[in-house]
Amino acid sequence: MKRRTFLTSAFAGTAALALGVSWYSSDPIQVGEDVNYRVLFSVLIPALLDGALPEVASQRKIAIDTTLDSIQASISVLPEEQQVELKELLALLESRLGLLLLTGSMTPLMLRSPIELVDMLEEWRFHYLDMIQTAYLGLRELILASYYSSPAHWGKLGYAKPTFLLNT
């Protein structure tokens, strides 16, 4: 039975057929052990949260680590179908061929400059293919929501929950 996933959109399906390849076996530098895609997210977080993350390096690292944990927590509560879609997208972004299709370049994301990453996201944001726009929106929502879900990141917002209750 065919799964309804990110990959089954006409675009990706056709491309895979045309190239006659498996997405997962062709990439020699796939980060196999990084089951939670922390390396990948740690590259995307500074691009999506530019201006929000602390400037001081040590604080910045803590904020990114907290966000990575929040992302993991966010993914774990998504319905199975959404988790599958997301993980297929993340696998694509770790695969050279996937990167070529999604970004027009095989250069791994972690080797790209901040400006290149922002350009990539901007291109996805206004892409004519719904699938790629969906990828942008999915990553955007996941990363921004995960960052701002943490009380540690509310300082710049001037937001704090009331403290009058003993049970919180």
Partner: peptide, 21 residues
């Protein structure tokens, strides 16, 4: 509230950070 607004607004990076600030 932060998550609701962060996700139901537009853009990312500097423009979004300014909105949230």
């Amino acid at each position: 509230h932060p998550v609701l607004i962060a996700s139901k607004t537009i853009g990312f990076g500097q423009s979004h950070a300014q909105l949230m600030a």
